[in-house]
Nucleic acid binder design. Sequence first.
DNA 1: CGTAAAATTGAAATATTATAACCTAAGGGC
DNA 2: GCCCTTAGGTTATAATATTTCAATTTTACG
Lengths: 154, 154
Amino acid sequence: MSQSHDHDHHHCIHTAIDRARSLCSERGLRLTPIRQRVLELIWQNHQPIGAYDLLPQLAEDGFNSAPPTVYRALDFLLELGVVHRISSLNAFIGCDHPGHQHPTGFFVCQGCGNATELPIDAITTLSDSLTASLDADIATCNIELSGTCRDCRN
Amino acid sequence: MSQSHDHDHHHCIHTAIDRARSLCSERGLRLTPIRQRVLELIWQNHQPIGAYDLLPQLAEDGFNSAPPTVYRALDFLLELGVVHRISSLNAFIGCDHPGHQHPTGFFVCQGCGNATELPIDAITTLSDSLTASLDADIATCNIELSGTCRDCRN
DNA sequence: CGTAAAATTGAAATATTATAACCTAAGGGC
DNA sequence: GCCCTTAGGTTATAATATTTCAATTTTACG
């Protein structure tokens, strides 16, 4: 759980839960205990986490712990727009600016494993420029970068 | 095997094999029968293909057919730079301009399944601009778009 | 050639990630 | 309360990928 950023991480978690809660109430959806716990676990740090790494942690908390349980919660959170899937890692990470489906971009450090979501404005611009050159209707855009972050380089 | 492009596909295959062959000889590597056959199968059309879809086709040709066989060939071809992996699909596709590791971008049509590799220049530009904004050493860049291509829209 | 080292392949087992199917229980509107 | 919809429990299985070790082929080189 190396935490390369120096910040108040409880704030991250709290904010994420709050946002999820208000999105749910806006949309008449339910942030059930399992769903909330999965979201908290995803936000325990800034590293993408795999579905099967969530299972034992849910079990510890006394929740049911079978693959469909966690995948259902993940699907819900993805749909709600508060979590993204990083497909090159088969792993999930919290969204910094949730609330709607949007083009995504991540940088994943091969050293510390932290994933940083790239500024949505920049990614949207890129997505739009790619779209313009394609003569196709673009439904999703996902960008995944890997390398070494500044902290790990030094 | 819907072939939405109207083109001489044998030319695609032939070119791909030729390039792989010359890359191998440049680098003192061997394009063995299995490797060549896997590359041909990947190039049988412009749709990404899964490792487990290659297996029975290899078996038909009398090749050994077990997961490690095909994954080893795929790893070799990826390393050689003549094939890319589309991680959102767990599938593989031939590279249009092979020979070195480079930032990649694909558009995958949800209708016909065809994948189009985006112009490497454009992708490199995007990758560079992202890199500049990140203060990190970027090792890989992969962009995956999905949507509906022009042919499928009509 | 002949042989040793390296690369490649064969084969069996298993790990990892994800979904299907079907049933039970809980929440919410009337 | 009753009904309907949503959510969760449970079992099984599908889909993707890797580990391990042995056997074979190729290559380098004396």
